[in-house]
Write a protein that binds this DNA or RNA. Structure first.
Lengths: 210, 210
DNA sequence: GATTAAACGGAGGAAATTCCTCCGCATGGC
DNA sequence: GCCATGCGGAGGAATTTCCTCCGTTTAATC
């Protein structure tokens, strides 16, 4: 069953609005707010996503697709693995992309992760990230005691940045944070990390949902 | 006017419950939840904090006092500035201490920062942090292009960690994140950060409130 | 450009959440 | 032992959030 063009457009607007609101405010925003942000009637939201769960799955998949697109672009266009990773991380922090999950019913969370589309896109994401990490480590420019999962965690931590940074600083902060973070990842004698490197499958690298 | 001992105790329980809930769930939790978490009746909460704003100010000050205590202990007990900073950062990340502010009415936010007690404790906090940063830089072990404000931002970013980390990893994650972060701060040829170092007074190093 | 199935918006009542007062009982301080 | 201060929490008010429904609009097709 194929959506009419306007329906398709509104669907995307809703998913993006949902993602944006979750990032900005944390928690699950009221559905009315999502509709308003999307510039769409509340009825439209309910027509497209009769069940709350469907909306959440949609937002997860949508977010993951954005992350994968950024990773793919970085991988394709940068000359080496470290540059790709670095560009990817910077972009994620800048756009506040990354894992959304936080305060969800764990049971629902599991159902979201089991969704075929989410699971599929998530796989692509993990693969790309793993390739970058392995490449950068093989090139000797990245510390050996981290795994793709660590990068995922690092990025996800930046998604919910405090929103009250004074305006004149807001532009600079993400870049500085990303820079510090990347320097921490470089292969240089530093303090060994506790525990074992976190692999991609251990955890939720990106896009789990509310 | 001095509080009776039980009233005093309950007041502290409420502030701590509020802090904990904000950290765990983000946003402003229902007052009923705060009271319950504190193991106290809702009436007690309203008696002690008739205005919402007073509660927020109280939580801010309470949180800041914890942060200052951690900083002070680190400064007093560690042999050098870098060790102190390092211990302080690790402890903040571990306990998820740091700036709470995020989605507050900016106007209220300003009123909170203007509160004498908040302002006072915040000053102590900035001083201690500045001393650590300057000391570590003077010792040549910390990169020169960061300021106390950068540390504040770094810490605050870790306050709202995703809550859905698999249990077997949850213990390791904060330590690894803090380790990466600290290695990023070390004085070693890395990538220069964009923009200028953020000073303590530029921003909100810790303890703004919901 | 006429037809029509699909989609739209948003008013408004139901349901759920959150707020906050009030008062009979408990207890710390003297 | 006295009593001012503090306590708990039931329950009604206020607010927020949910979600259905239907008259109107629009994309697709011929």
């Amino acid at each position: 069953m194929v959506l009419r063009a306007d329906a398709r457009r509104n669907r995307d607007l809703l998913l993006e609005a949902g993602r944006a609101l979750i990032v900005e405010r944390g928690g699950m925003p009221p559905l009315e707010d999502i509709a308003e942000r999307a510039g769409v009637g509340i009825g439209t939201l309910y027509r497209r996503f009769p069940e709350r769960e469907q909306l959440m799955i949609g937002i997860s998949a949508h977010t993951l697709r954005q992350v994968v697109a950024a990773a793919q672009a970085a991988w394709d266009e940068e000359p080496d693995a470290w540059s790709a990773l670095s560009r990817f991380v910077r972009r994620c922090v800048e756009l506040r992309m990354g894992v959304l999950s936080s305060t969800v019913d764990p049971e629902l969370h599991t159902r979201i992760r089991r969704d075929p589309e989410v699971s599929e896109v998530r796989g692509q994401m993990v693969d790309l990230l793993a390739r970058m990490v392995e490449g950068a480590q093989a090139d000797g420019v990245m510390r050996e005691d981290v795994g793709p999962g660590d990068i995922g965690m690092l990025i996800s931590v930046h998604v919910h940045q405090a929103a009250d940074i004074p305006a004149e600083l807001a532009g600079a902060v993400p870049g500085r944070l990303a820079g510090l973070m990347l320097d921490g990842l470089r292969a240089r004698p530093g303090t060994p990390l506790p525990g074992a490197a976190i692999s991609g499958t251990d955890t939720e690298p990106a896009g789990g949902a509310h």
